[in-house]
Amino acid sequence: MSICNVSLQVVPNVPGDKIYPVVDKVIEYIESTGVKHEVGPMETTMEGELDFLLEIIKKSQEICVEQGADRVISMVKIDYKKDGVTIDEKIKKYRK
């Protein structure tokens, strides 16, 4: 399968002062997988094989619940094409 991009935004249902610590745990997990990723102000974009990235999304939901969320709303965007797509090809011209 080709390389694709998947963006993930998690919104854990926890008290307001707990949102960032829960999201930080998800980002720590994503970093621990070794997958290429970029953290943005609203979502984290990952690059890799779709099946692997979907497993990361699944585990991210579990992490939110383990951290005290009784519900998690997630927004997922997938950019897939037959020949693959990379983060760099999409935003390289905007980097300084």
Rank of each mutant, 00 (worst) to 15 (best):
M1V: 05
M1G: 08
S2A: 12
S2D: 05
S2C: 04
I3C: 03
C4I: 05
C4R: 01
N5Q: 15
N5G: 01
N5K: 09
V6D: 00
S7W: 00
S7T: 14
Q9M: 12
V10E: 02
V11Y: 12
V11G: 00
P12G: 12
N13K: 13
N13M: 10
N13Y: 04
V14G: 11
V14N: 11
V14C: 11
V14Q: 06
P15F: 03
G16K: 11
I19Y: 06
I19K: 10
I19M: 05
Y20D: 05
P21I: 09
V22N: 11
V22G: 06
V22F: 11
V22T: 15
V23A: 13
K25I: 04
K25N: 11
K25C: 14
K25L: 13
I27K: 02
I27L: 14
E28W: 13
Y29P: 09
I30T: 10
E31C: 08
E31I: 10
E31R: 14
S32R: 10
T33F: 02
T33Y: 01
G34A: 08
G34H: 05
V35P: 01
K36V: 04
H37C: 07
H37S: 13
E38L: 13
E38Q: 14
V39S: 04
V39C: 01
G40N: 04
P41H: 08
P41W: 02
P41N: 08
P41D: 09
M42P: 00
E43Q: 11
E43V: 06
E43Y: 07
M46W: 00
G48I: 02
G48D: 09
G48F: 01
E49L: 06
L50E: 03
L50F: 07
L50D: 00
D51K: 07
D51N: 02
D51F: 03
D51W: 03
F52L: 07
F52M: 07
L53N: 04
L54Y: 03
I56A: 02
I56R: 01
I56F: 00
I56D: 04
I57H: 06
K58A: 04
K58L: 02
K59S: 03
K59N: 14
S60L: 04
Q61G: 12
Q61D: 10
E62R: 07
I63Q: 06
I63E: 00
C64S: 08
E66Y: 08
E66L: 12
A69S: 04
A69Y: 01
D70K: 13
D70I: 12
D70P: 04
R71Y: 14
R71F: 09
V72Y: 06
V72R: 12
I73V: 15
I73E: 11
I73M: 14
I73N: 11
S74T: 15
S74G: 13
M75H: 15
M75C: 05
M75P: 02
M75N: 15
K77C: 06
K77F: 06
K77R: 15
K77M: 03
I78L: 13
I78G: 11
D79T: 15
Y80Q: 12
Y80F: 05
D83Y: 11
D83A: 13
D83W: 10
V85M: 06
V85D: 02
V85P: 02
T86M: 08
T86V: 01
T86L: 00
T86H: 06
I87Y: 09
I87H: 02
I87S: 12
D88F: 10
E89I: 14
E89G: 05
K90R: 15
K90N: 07
K90A: 08
I91L: 13
I91F: 11
K92D: 07
K93I: 11
K93V: 14
K96A: 08
K96G: 15
